[in-house]
Amino acid sequence: MTSIKIFSGKNKDIPEKYLEQYFALRQQDEEEWYGVLPPSLDFYRNFWNVPREKGSDRIKTIAVNKNNLAIGFGYILWNTLYDNLDRSWFRIYVSPKERRKGIGSQILKEMLKKLPNEIKIVGAEAQKDSPGEYFLKKFKKEQSYAEDVITADLEEVNLKDVEKEAQKQKELALSKGYQIIRVDDRDFKSYFDEEEFVKIIEQIWNDMPKEDLTEENMNLTVERHQAIYDRNKKTGQEYITFVVVHEATKQPVGLTSFAINKYQPAIAWQDDTGIIHEHRGNGLGLAVKYQSLLTLLKETKVKYWITGSAHSNKYMYRINKILGHELWQNVPVYEFERKTIDELLS
C-alpha cells in the first residue's frame, strides 16, 4: 500500500491547510460522477460549515501523500435518532492517478475505526462498471439496489408544446377531482396541517421501491422533516413543489418537488415524486411533473433536469421518458456486514 497520512473525524480534525485541496477533490468527484459542470468551489466551502441535522452524524476523512498533496477523501454518515440506527453510508473518492494503490481501503479502514459499535451495516453506491464499483465488489459481489439516473436537456424542449400539455394535464386532473397547487420553499404549513402533510411525505418515501435493501421504513416527524430541508437550504438549495389536492376532502394526496442550488444554477435536481396508493391510476404523477417542467423552462436558466428512480420502477421511468429524460447512468447500491469489511481490511 502507498504510504499516506490520513486525517479523520470532525471538522476540527482536518488541518485547515488542506481544505482548499479537499474542496477541489469534492468538485472533481462530482464532475467525474455526473459528467456535467459541478457546483463552484464556493459550494464546498459553504457546505463544509453546514452542520448535520439533529439525529444524524458524520465522519470526514482526507488522505495526503508525502508531498502534502490531498489525493483522496471519504465520509461516512449514520442516524443517531428515529430509525435505521444500525447502519451507515459511505463515500470514498481517490484521484485517478492514485487508484489501485490501496488508498481507498486505508480511508475506509480509518473511518470504520471511528464508527460507533452500534453500526452493523455499511452501504455505498457507485456508477456501474466504474472504479468505484470495482472497489465495492472487493467486499461483496451482489448489489442490493439499482438506481437509474436519467436527465433531460431542457434546451431541446419546445416551450409551446410543454405549455399546451401542462395545461391539458392540469385540466384533466381537475376533471377527475384534483387540484394542483404550487408551494415555494417547501412552505407547506401555510397551506396544510403540517403534521398530516408530513405523514403523506413519509408514506411516499416509504413506498418507494427498496428492491433488496434491508433498511427500515423512515420515521418522519415534523421536526425531522423541517431539519432536513433547513439544512439543505443552508447549502444553497431552493425548492419548488407541486402538490396534488383531492377536491372532495381538501387533503394533499401527492407531490413532486425539485431543487436548484445557487452554486450550480444550470442543474435542477429532482426531489420527491409520489402519489399515495388510493389515488393512483389518474395520471397525477405525470400531471405534476409537467408543471415542474413548465416552471423550469419559463422561470429558470436550468439546462439539465436530473432525476433518478429504482431500476424496477417502470412506471416512473415511463413518465420521465415522456418528459424527455434519457438514461444517463445506472448506479448499483451495495450493503455490507460491517464485520465482513473489518475482516477483509485487517
Rank of each mutant, 00 (worst) to 15 (best):
Q143I: 14
P252A: 03
K210M: 09
H225N: 05
Q291P: 02
E326T: 12
S190Q: 12
D212G: 14
Q106H: 07
A266P: 08
P209I: 13
L19V: 10
L327G: 05
L284G: 02
D187Y: 05
Y304F: 12
D13N: 07
I180R: 04
K137D: 03
T273Y: 00
T249H: 06
Q251H: 07
S3G: 10
K138F: 04
L286R: 04
D342W: 07
Y22A: 11
Y82C: 02
T241N: 09
P131C: 01
K339V: 15
K60E: 11
D185V: 10
K138W: 05
K168M: 13
F73Q: 08
L108R: 01
E31C: 09
E125T: 13
R45W: 05
E247K: 11
P332D: 06
E133P: 10
Q270C: 04
P209F: 07
P96K: 08
G281C: 07
K176M: 10
N282D: 06
L81M: 10
K314I: 14
L345K: 03
P38I: 03
F135Y: 05
Y22N: 12
P265L: 03
L174Q: 15
I4W: 06
K66Y: 09
Q329N: 14
K321D: 12
K60R: 13
A166K: 06
N84A: 02
K160P: 14
D185Q: 12
S105M: 12
A70E: 02
A70G: 06
Y34A: 12
S257P: 06
S95C: 14
I240K: 01
N117M: 14
L327S: 14
E147V: 15
E156K: 15
E142A: 13
K5Q: 15
K262T: 03
K113D: 14
E16N: 09
I260G: 00
Y334H: 09
L297H: 03
G274A: 10
E20T: 11
Y315A: 15
R99P: 05
D57F: 09
P51K: 00
K303H: 05
T256V: 06
W205N: 12
D83R: 04
Q203P: 00
H325Y: 07
I240H: 03
I204W: 00
K140G: 12
N49H: 07
I121R: 06
E31L: 08
E326D: 14
K120W: 06
K113G: 13
R52E: 13
E202V: 02
Y22C: 13
T241V: 13
I228R: 08
P96A: 08
A63F: 04
K54R: 13
P51Q: 01
W33D: 10
A248D: 15
R231T: 14
G274F: 00
M316H: 02
N313K: 07
E335Y: 06
V149D: 10
S175R: 12
T214L: 11
T295H: 13
